[in-house]
Simulated scan of single mutants.
Amino acid sequence: MDLLQLRYFQTVARYEHISRAAEELRVAQPSLSRTIARLEAELGSPLFDRQGRRIRLNPYGAIFLRHVDRALSELDDGRRALRDARDTGLGRVSVASETLLTITHLLGSFRAAHPRADVRLFQSTAKEMDRRLRAREVDFCVASQPLTGSGLTAVELAREEVLLAVPRGHWLDGREKVTVPEIADEPFVTTRQGHWQRALLDRLFAAEGLTPRLSCEGDEPGASQDMISAGLGIGLIPAMSRRVGTDVSVPVAWVHMDAPGCHRVLSLVSNRDAYLSEAALKFQEFCTSRPFMTHRLPDPRRGRARRDS
């Protein structure tokens, strides 16, 4: 049994698909299949159930995968520790977030305070963030949804209201608040399933026994406000987006949602057992030692008055 076999097994177990795993590993499918077969022969047990071209990790494979994940994670941590020991800077900190707008200012402030830190940023869905943390591809996730798996730890950074954004001239332009049943027939601009905006929208409507009508589903939450201003629908936008002053270039009207739980909680999530470079430790301290954002919520009527002036 060698390290290459374990890497190959881990990738095949993640995809449960030989061709996709071979594509990521950049090896030929027959070669990958032979490597997995040799590993199973050495272990004396099949690790996958095979049905034609389909493979599924079986109970023996699941047991073995837990140990392989831990072993390879330790080796990866050792490699990072050695690299950081040679590095004349602070080392690297890798961060994942569902939307880049959420942490742009934070990362800019951190880089200004620690210019020697090597900062890497990834945009990911909640599912992908969970995988990246477990694979130790990132040190932290700034998550808008709970990542509650074993071994993960979360610190709440901020809690903010989520507002309803509507195009200028919409019948809700000027309203202070609105209920979910009142907008049940409105077309919504939102994100695909897996993003927090979609999860919140589905939850608010499900609480009323309703299903939202969608006009647009995308992968970039930051683009929603542009599409709303263009008249493609209405949508849920965090209060932070209203505060950054984008209403001059992307004019929308803001309305409070009269619905319980219409807010977003931002958390800094990390893998409890993962190695953290000096840069990562400083980033953790930087995030948790100061307010993440201003908690004062906008007044939609004030924003409308500014646009009309």
Rank of each mutant, 00 (worst) to 15 (best):
R54G: 03
L266Q: 06
N271M: 07
A135Q: 10
R53T: 12
Q193E: 15
R134A: 01
A305N: 02
R301K: 10
A158R: 00
V255Y: 10
F283H: 02
T148Y: 07
E16G: 04
V248W: 11
D130A: 15
V250H: 08
A274C: 04
S150N: 11
T11C: 10
S267F: 07
R92F: 06
H67N: 08
F9T: 04
T153I: 13
I183W: 14
R134W: 05
V250Y: 12
G52A: 07
I237H: 05
A143Q: 02
R54W: 08
V269G: 06
T11L: 09
G151K: 00
D273E: 15
L6D: 03
S144R: 15
L65Y: 04
Q29W: 04
P291F: 08
T190G: 12
F48H: 07
R175M: 10
R131F: 06
L297G: 00
V178H: 04
F48A: 05
P300I: 04
L107T: 15
V189F: 09
H256Y: 11
R264Y: 02
G231N: 09
L266W: 02
G231R: 08
G222A: 14
P181C: 04
L164Q: 12
R116P: 00
H17L: 01
G89H: 07
Q5C: 00
M1G: 08
P221M: 03
V269Y: 06
A112S: 09
E278W: 00
N271F: 03
T99N: 10
L100E: 10
E285P: 05
